[in-house]
Design a protein around this nucleic acid. Structure first.
Lengths: 334, 334
DNA sequence: TCCGGTATCGATAACGGTTGCGATACCGAT
DNA sequence: ATCGGTATCGCAACCGTTATCGATACCGGA
């Protein structure tokens, strides 16, 4: 490993000034094609990697977009990311991911860390934050987009769906199909606010027609098929009268379906099932599970577009509040 | 949004020099508890976020570890990440993820981009890279760990499993259980080298006992349950004599299982199934699918440990080459 | 031949912190 | 009261690159 190579060295080797080398390597104007080719050649040959820390400090600009999500295991956020990446693809911006672990204190520290790198934009999942986080989002001198959820009070831009409405909508569909003995299985993670909102919307929707939940089960930790299967078995064992179960996630409803298969229960004859997210794993299963699409990809796309647009001359006029409509898909299990 | 707040401003507000403010906020020594408290108070009240770009340039150190993976949707890499995060958790280092999309050219540009931020370490999935990438990895003035795979020629440190061995091992198990009419379904992504190695190891293992594959199917795009189901249906339709199918991923074998369920085939009676990765989605299915554990979490942990250790006084002696043994789990489908 | 205009390039000063070292203040011991 | 030692703090230089602006070279037209 040779001594570290600086722009200065490349310039010296090419017999030009640092400035010319800098311009050449950045594709900036005011460099003749010939010298540019020469400098690029030398840089490549010697494996020069520019120091973007110095560059960003000097140019006062960072081509990074910070993205903060609660988790990467949950199947749901990677798809938001892919929406973001797709839009940022042919722009100079690159997404950088931070994980908050469904913990607002951790979120605060992750966001502080990311903002300390002075990114060109910040996209964060959820509307619930600590007070300190909200202050940071307000004062950040880059566009900020809160995504996934619209039920609340966004600090700046916002793109998402209403989880209250999603829960209520599913309640209405379930009631419309005649189910009345209804159970709910959902996460108890205190800070999974969106799951909580779906739960609230769901019970509201039921209450609107005088129905209350017959059984409720909360689990902790990340959602898993296995967990869904076990909790479904337990719930049906103790509440055999149930004719429908609503899950806070598709991952769990898949587990429910697996239990029913194993137990020889007919779905939706013996028991109807519905989840949330419209995850890809629903495709290819024995039955098409009922679910609500969370518009993950599109949310990512729109958030990234807001960031991009606010860099343009005109910029974004006012604050964006983009409420997408979550489509319910009844599948074959309702 | 007020004018941007600099260390200078905080210092002025606190009536101290920039240096004292800097030390106080970094927790460096040589600051009295009283002034430190005062400075911290002022910084917090005004929402000061330090500029790590300037700080890193000056201190010549960046508390980031670059992690480059092919994808985040595939269920497999997030778990490597969680291993990394777990180890980095109580250290000053933070992981930063980049996605290469199973594309070596893209990988090169992602790695160049990450190295331009002068991270404290680099973890990259796979041993296959462009020549330019290899040069960068060699010259990088930070520890570099190639992970997931050990079949090849690592540039620096390496932690992974042998996918050749994994494929061969599964072939031996399959043959040992008496199957002879064997099909293979795997990705055709030209750059998914590990899947290719498993395939090669698998055919080698079969050939060692005079068996050749009866049918092969390659698909493009990311693995999906739906794809696994469809391809399994197609393959069994045209090659009804098959008694076992090996998939390049668990996601696909789950699809195979779903087809068998739907088609009323008994597993492994009519057809045996085996996948790879030991993904969490295998838990809770009607049958425990045969698979090989890819040691994803542990690989992440060890890679991160190497990065951490090389920052310590003693450092890492020589080059680490850590070959983990992938455990086969026969499940109930072989 | 001289001139204005453009293309190409370089010197200098930031960018916002931190390192290194010197300065000052404060303490108990002599 | 003086001294050595430590705790606390500030000054100046510097980290590697880019913005700004001025300098030079080169060109065609008058």
């Amino acid at each position: 490993m040779t001594k570290k190579l600086l722009l200065k060295d490349v310039a010296k080797l090419a017999g030009v000034s640092e400035m010319t080398a800098s311009r050449a390597l950045r594709g900036a104007p005011d460099v003749s094609a010939k010298t540019k080719a020469k400098i690029e050649e030398i840089a490549r040959a010697h494996g020069y990697v520019p120091n973007r820390i110095a560059g960003s400090l000097s140019s006062q600009s960072v081509n990074l977009v910070a993205v903060v999500v609660p988790s990467l295991n949950s199947f749901v956020f990677p798809e938001v990311l892919s929406g973001i990446s797709a839009v940022l693809k042919d722009s100079p911006l690159k997404p950088v991911v931070g994980v908050s672990g469904y913990d607002l204190a951790e979120e605060e520290s992750v966001i502080r860390e990311m903002l300390s790198w002075r990114p060109s934009g910040l996209i964060v999942a959820g509307l619930e934050h600590t007070e300190a986080t909200r202050r940071m989002l307000q004062q950040a001198d880059c566009p900020v987009v809160e995504v996934m959820d619209v039920d609340g009070d966004p600090v700046r831009h916002c793109v998402g769906i209403s989880h209250l409405q999603a829960g209520r909508g599913m309640a209405e569909q379930i009631l419309a199909r005649g189910y009345r003995k209804i159970g709910f299985i959902g996460t108890k993670m205190p800070q999974d606010f969106r799951a909580r909102k779906r739960f609230d919307g769901f019970t509201d929707g039921l209450a609107a027609q005088g129905v209350t939940l017959d059984d409720i089960e909360h689990y902790s930790g990340e959602s898993a098929i296995q967990t869904g299967r076990q909790l479904t078995a337990q719930m049906l064992a103790r509440s055999p009268e149930l004719d429908c179960i609503y899950y806070s996630s598709d991952v769990m409803s898949v587990g429910g379906l697996m239990h029913c298969l194993a137990a020889g229960l007919s779905v939706p004859g013996d028991i109807a099932l519905a989840g949330f997210n419209n995850l890809q794993i629903l495709q290819g299963l024995p039955l098409q599970l009922a679910t609500t699409d969370a518009c993950r990809h599109e949310i990512g796309e729109r958030a990234a577009q807001i960031i991009l647009k606010s860099r343009e001359p005109g910029g974004v006029e006012g604050l964006v509040f983009d409420r997408l409509t979550p489509a319910i898909s009844l599948g074959e299990t309702l």
